[in-house]
Design a protein around this nucleic acid. Structure first.
Length: 984
RNA sequence: GCGGAUGUGGCGUAAUUGGUAGCCGUGCCAGACUUAGGAUCUGGUGUCGUAAGACGUGUGGGUUCGAGUCCCUCCAUCCGCACCA
């Protein structure tokens, strides 16, 4: 009876589906456990072997926890709004919903093939109107909330309106409404508020709403026709597509995530995530503690506020620098510097983000002619503008302390400004030194203090004088929420007389309208402007254009739907709430969340933000979504590449035997060859031999083996890519043309490719599809092999070198039950040796799953099978528990064996085997005995001996006397079960 | 520049608290069975050495009877942030 994975796997997958084996109840006596994968975007390329890595790990934990008696929530769904489906729609006219539906079907098929224990009754899709009605609803909640900085929580906006109606708004008494955030709200009293009228009131409220409309600089990507979040921009170009991105002032919906900066920062300490993810989030939030103070401008009303982390260096200030975009620039610039400053501002505004980043070292700036007054010394301080100061951070102005800050130092040197010293004994002749250790000099009341003390002291004095205060600044910006795209959640907002208002709950969901094309309109409006029924009447709902009020045209960004999905799985079909409070309280946090580290500052930050917000309004009881996070590593692909020439010139290119000039980066080398060389493709060994500069092209890896394209496959190249049909492929000894080798000289006719480890992707032709492995060796082999590759968090290239070991292991496991003939296990009592193998394995498997070390579990199984094979063990009492141990890893083979063992229930219901340590205890332990750390001999000592008995036994041994040579031992070290060391 | 992580056989990796480094798997060598094998089984496999033995976890140092593990130095690779005041 051979192990036949295909039959077994099909049988059990069908049965699980029919019986709903993995359906989970929201009510149970058992303790509960929530294990979640980051849900995928269903792309057209389907799953590759990298996707299931995390899913397999989470599935193992889910199945393990079920065996251990937990009620396990282990759902799956799709993050189905996204750009690729929309771009495909633009190209083909096919509705993104149709594309998405097809892709999901394919994903589901592939996922089912691997045998996951997801509860598919709980599937969610972010693009399903029944799902996104709640995404939209949460948006309306954000719109109708403000942040109370005193209580550090969000509250309904009506509380704020009540306050304004009774007390008005007075900057200092109501500071808890604005926190440390800069604002320019003019104070008003209750009467004034009432007299403002709706439009003006709404304008004021927008300063407080957590979802708000404002004129802000955005990352505008002209090529994609949309704005991008900071997280979607890398090195000045779009993360997807690599198109240029520019700063542009636009009216935009944003979410006030900055209100949550402090909590997002502090709560990181309480969750068990990797240090690198937490550190990324801390970097992104960018908390810095310091002080804000204002400099008066001489002969003007203007004050320049600056933020500094080093108030101790206040007496080292020799000039101020404000950002070119700063609103004070035009006000303070003197007449004689006006032209130069305007020119500079113009120059700075024309430099894109990318240019600015590219030449960081270039020092530019301009004197405004204005002077500020030092708050303590009264000295005149020149005010400059310079683009090394960013408008978007802090106050957009800095007090320059050249002795303590390298950028200020460089600026001072470049423009010949003074560099006063404030640190005792610190050399600043070559560079700035930001030490806090040194004592202060030339600093009035700070003299003699170290930097640490001076910081505190200075803040006290600033507050006494009323010119500044201690302040915390964050790098985190509010999240831009509107996208000029079609395939996303419509923002449920309409505009009545220019005032934004949210839809009534009963009119949600606001379903995506049908449009004729998925492109922006000819006058640049987002695709939703093409809809014919896109106006709103608060009494009726959506109405035809021309009636009611116009509806918002932008849609939500990709991360909206994924910011709360873990809650929807708890009650996927709930019609009254996004989730009922009682059910949310039952499941609480995600116990284990598995997904890629690339979401560190995107999804994972918004996920935490929305969870906190929903908690503040009392809808859920938790403030962090996931207790434990594991970042599975990427499985990379191995690409195979061939070369084309970067040719400088081709001389006398006609007839046979021509000369091609290869350029190797330095020299031009003439090389004799046949014709058709310029557009030819070159074997990698030839490229190495000639060392020319080349462009690389990916080749479908299925056409290569060990980085060689075989002669048979050479002829298939033309079928694979049309333009290869007539192409020439040059090897060392000749060339391939139309699949035939033309010999020119002695040398190889093997065409080599260059292999390179890179991200697995369709465009690189290096994708390994899990279906192929499932068909050849079975899903259980795939599951175990992916776990066996190495630690789950590690990036690793996919290679199948070891896969035969894994499939061999499963066959051997199967044979334990079926050898020598048929399924025939012995009911005899197990021997101590057999029991030892079993219990050693129970312990190892259990402990290693608990610490997420899946690769070592696989090793433990292999050892057990080897040892039981040697013992020729075929006893039920040993093998039956092993089936349960294996079932999280290889559920199909486990089910089949479990059934053959005569059980009526599936293995899923079986309890985890009990571990009994007494079977592991040995009669005697073999102790290595050392003298002064050197191993001399081993001594068998009864395991039950105490430390003192062991010492006596060792000292009584005649070899001991020999080694001690009459010296008394100074110390005897006995490590239980490990070693004895005698120091003399 | 700041921060995080990682360095162990030919390769993927293991060593839970400091206790015989290299488990398990691949690859390789030898053998058995075989018409054959990408089947199965047995033995070997860190380096040098015939051997005894010596050396060995990126480098150099330290703590310890004992260090892959703890501390310091340097080097290399990867990742995140980066003119953030």
């Amino acid at each position: 009876m051979e192990y036949n994975p295909q039959d077994i796997e099909q049988k059990w997958q069908a049965r699980w589906k029919a019986d709903k084996t993995y359906a989970t109840s929201n009510h149970s006596e058992k303790p509960n456990y929530y294990v979640l994968d980051m849900f995928p975007y269903p792309s057209g390329a389907g799953l590759h072997v990298g996707h299931p890595l995390g899913y397999i790990a989470s599935d193992i934990v889910a199945r393990f926890k079920r065996h251990k008696g937990f009620n396990v929530l282990h759902p799956m769904g799709y993050d189905s709004f996204g750009l690729p489906a929309e771009q495909y729609a633009i190209q083909t006219g096919q509705h993104p919903a149709v594309t998405t539906e097809e892709n999901i079907a394919r994903y589901r098929e592939q996922l089912d093939r691997i045998g996951f224990s997801f509860d598919w009754d709980r599937e969610v899709r972010t693009s399903d109107p029944e799902y996104y009605r709640w995404t939209q609803w949460i948006f309306t909640q954000l719109f109708n909330s403000f942040y109370n900085y005193k209580l550090q929580k969000a509250e309904p906006i009506f509380k704020l309106i009540n306050l304004f109606e009774t007390e008005g708004f007075n900057g200092s008494d109501h500071e808890f409404l604005t926190g440390d955030i800069e604002h320019d709200i003019v104070p008003f009293n209750a009467e004034e508020w009432k007299a403002f009228g709706e439009k003006k009131q709404e304008e004021i409220l927008l300063n407080f709403r957590l979802a708000y409309l404002s004129e802000t600089y955005v990352n505008w990507c002209a090529a994609m026709g949309t704005v991008l979040a900071n997280e979607e921009v890398k090195d000045g170009v779009s993360e997807r597509g690599g198109y240029p991105v520019e700063r542009k002032l636009m009216k935009q919906w944003s979410l006030r995530i900055t209100a949550y900066a402090e909590r997002l920062y502090n709560d990181l300490d309480a969750i068990d995530w990797t240090e690198s993810i937490k550190e990324s989030q801390r970097n992104w939030i960018g908390k810095s503690v310091g002080a804000e103070l204002s400099f008066r401008v001489e002969g003007s009303e203007a004050k320049i506020p600056v933020f500094t982390t080093r108030p101790d260096t206040l007496f080292g200030v020799s000039f101020l620098v404000v950002a070119p975009e700063h609103e004070l620039v035009s006000k303070i610039t003197t007449a004689e510097h006006k032209t130069a400053v305007e020119e500079y501002v113009h120059y700075a505004s024309n430099r894109s983000e990318r240019d600015r980043m590219a030449d960081v070292k270039k020092i530019t700036g301009q004197f405004t002619g204005a002077y500020a007054i030092h708050p303590f010394t009264g000295a005149q301080i020149p005010v400059w503008i310079g683009d090394y100061v960013l408008a978007g951070y802090g106050t957009g102005a800095v007090m320059a302390v050249p002795c303590g800050d390298q950028r200020d130092y460089d600026f001072a040197k470049h423009f010949n400004l003074p560099i006063p010293a404030v640190f005792e004994g610190v050399d600043i002749s070559e560079k700035a030194d930001p030490t806090k250790e040194a004592r202060m000099i030339n600093s009035d009341f700070l003299n003699g203090l170290t930097g640490y003390d001076a910081i505190k002291m200075c803040i006290v004095r600033l507050e006494e004088k009323g010119i500044g205060k201690g302040k915390v600044n964050y790098r985190l910006r509010d999240a831009i929420f509107g996208r000029q795209r079609y395939w996303g959640e419509p923002i449920p907002v309409y505009y009545k007389d220019g005032v934004a208002k949210t839809f009534k709950d009963e009119h949600l969901p606001l379903v995506l309208p049908e449009v004729d094309k998925f492109l922006p309109t000819t006058d640049g409006e987002p695709p939703l402007a093409r809809a014919e029924t896109w106006n709103y009447d608060p009494e009726i709902g959506l109405v035809a254009n021309g009636e009611g009020y116009p509806v918002e045209l932008t849609t939500m960004p990709g991360w909206a739907g994924s910011s709360w999905y873990f809650l929807r799985y708890m009650e996927p079909n709930g019609v009254n709430n996004f989730v009922s409070r009682s059910i949310a309280d039952y499941w609480q946090q995600i116990d284990l969340y598995i997904g890629g580290a690339e979401h560190a500052t995107g999804h994972l930050l918004y996920f935490r933000f929305w969870t906190k917000f929903l908690h503040d309004l009392g809808y859920i009881g938790i403030t962090e979504p996931a207790k434990k996070l594991i970042n599975q590593g990427m499985i990379q692909g191995v690409s195979e590449k061939i070369h084309t020439l970067k040719v400088l010139s081709v001389a006398g290119h006609s007839g046979k035997s021509n000369t091609v000039h290869f350029f190797n980066g330095k020299d031009i080398t003439p090389v004799e060859f046949n014709d058709q060389l310029v557009s030819a493709y070159y074997s990698h060994d030839l490229k190495i031999a000639l060392n020319f500069e080349s462009n690389e092209h990916n080749i479908d890896i299925s056409l290569t083996e060990n980085s060689v394209i075989s002669p048979e496959n050479m002829s298939k190249l033309g079928e694979w890519r049309d333009d290869f049909a007539d192409a020439v492929f040059v090897c060392e000894g000749g060339y391939w043309w139309q699949g035939t080798f033309h010999r020119l000289k002695d040398g190889s006719d093997v065409f080599r490719t260059k292999s390179e480890v890179e991200k697995m992707s369709k465009s690189k032709w290096n994708v390994i599809n899990p279906d192929v492995i499932c068909n050849e060796l079975g899903a259980d082999t795939l599951r175990i092999y992916e776990m066996f590759l190495g630690p789950i968090e590690q990036h690793k290239p996919w290679n199948t070198n070891g896969i035969s070991g894994v499939s061999g292991f499963l066959r051997k496991f199967w044979r334990l039950f079926t050898a020598p003939s048929g399924f025939n296990l012995s009911e005899d009592a197990a021997t101590p040796a057999e029991l030892k193998v079993l219990h050693k394995t129970i312990k190892k498997v259990n402990d290693d799953i608990e610490r997420y070390s899946f690769n070592t579990v696989v090793s433990a199984f292999m050892i057990a099978v080897n040892e039981l094979g040697e013992l020729k063990c075929s006893k039920r009492s040993i093998l039956e528990p092993l089936v349960v141990l294996l079932s999280p890893f290889a559920p199909h083979i486990a089910e089949e064996l479990w059934e053959k063992l005569g059980h009526e229930q599936t293995v899923t219901q079986a309890a985890w085997p009990d571990f009994n340590a007494s079977y592991l205890v040995e009669d005697s332990v073999s102790y290595p005995v050392q003298f002064n750390g050197k191993m001399r001999f081993t001594l068998d000592i009864p395991a039950a001996y105490t430390r003192e008995q062991i010492e006596a036994e060792v000292l009584g041994w005649e070899a001991t006397t020999k080694y001690l040579e009459g010296k008394a031992p100074k110390k005897i070290i006995v490590v239980p079960n490990k070693i004895v060391n005698i120091v003399y």
